[in-house]
Nucleic acid binder design. Structure first.
Lengths: 202, 202
DNA sequence: CTCATTAATGACTCGTTGGTCAGCAATTAT
DNA sequence: ATAATTGCTGACCAACGAGTCATTAATGAG
């Protein structure tokens, strides 16, 4: 009547390992995280981990791909579903979404990409295709819709959707370096949005 | 008449090693750079390097401290010396200064700090004290001078000098990830400056 | 129950790298 | 010249961590 020392759970392992890896990478960064550490957090042996992921690098890629895709797609869905005015949408759901980023898993991924990206060009390509360009496109789309509806006037801003993301980026970096001290990231993002709206409103 | 195999140059070594380390870290990041590699780039043996720097970590700190201090002080000096109007100064020297950052050594340091900073809290403190807070203060100073002179009106912007730095930050990160593709960083920074000026002009 | 299958373990290897040190050779002093 | 000093070298070591594999035991089939 001894308890089994482990359960066979082929289906769940990859996801669990991926999540453990995310946590570990978030704490220590990619290079400084030992595979053993990931395995231990996932409650499995190192050997098993290597059954599901051929190398540490592949694990890294799996983590990145795993976390981000949902989020962007969520925002896109949001945009398509809404019937608010563009301005209301930007001030409401879009603003909330952006303000969440610095505390979300996305922030961790961004940090990981900055650190390790240059050594993983194919990963950067993937990320650019599936996250960055989609993200920029969706911002642009909101603005253009506003223009078509006569809410906004054409301006340089709709060629530079990056302007909406800059304070978010800054917040992510700031938080990762200095924690919450001396920068109210919500205020930064809000102010930038107000600035941009003031500039593009018809 | 054999050439000496090496020259004794106690004075110059630290600087040379520090510069070699900067280059190496810029290429490979901190964790992935071997001490041997740094020594080789500096044209010395690994043993010598350890004569001047007790550990790899200390070398890292020396690099960071070495590069950045000059720059910020340069900007501060610039501000104090000028007799231009605040607006002209922002559009001119300040703008040029900001646009240089993404291609400058500072960008490298920022990337290094994002990657390794969380494991070097004392370094982050140093950096915050000597670079970040000084940088923010100098931006704020320009704005306040403008207000005193009646060029600008008081606004939220002078509590958030970060707004001037956000597009710079974004450019640094973007460049380090995606190179020059699909983002004109000069334009991004210029546009943000115009936006801010339009908002604060009296 | 018994056997075949395979998920899972954990001890092992081996390349890598931060850090050391005994000795050497470039200077400087005498 | 010769000796004393010390900047510098390069071989070395110990730790560490990625990746392997022979073995074990949970599970499902007959």
């Amino acid at each position: 009547m001894s308890k089994p020392r482990y359960r066979r759970r082929k289906e769940d392992r990859p996801q669990e390992i991926t999540e453990a890896a995310f946590d570990a990478f978030a704490d220590k960064g990619y290079a400084s995280t030992r595979v053993e550490e990931v395995a231990s957090r996932a409650g499995v042996s190192k050997g098993l981990l290597y059954l599901y992921f051929k190398t540490k690098e592949e694990l890294f890629k799996a983590v990145v791909k795993n976390v981000v895709v949902r989020r962007v797609d969520a925002l896109i869905a949001l945009v398509d579903k809404t019937d608010q005015s563009s301005e209301a949408f930007i001030r409401g759901p879009a603003s909330r979404f952006l303000k969440e980023v610095p505390d979300s898993p996305v922030a961790v991924i961004i940090r990981l990409l900055i650190s390790e990206g240059p050594r993983h060009p194919d990963l950067l390509d993937y990320y650019y295709q599936n996250v960055v360009s989609k993200g920029l496109a969706v911002v642009q789309r909101i603005i253009r819709r506003g223009i078509e509806r006569g809410e906004f006037r054409p301006s340089i801003v709709d060629e530079l959707p990056h302007l909406f993301l800059a304070p978010v980026m800054m917040s992510v970096v700031w938080r990762s370096l200095f924690g919450k001290r001396s920068l109210d990231t919500d205020k930064l993002i809000d102010t930038q949005i107000e600035l941009l709206l003031a500039h593009i409103k018809a």
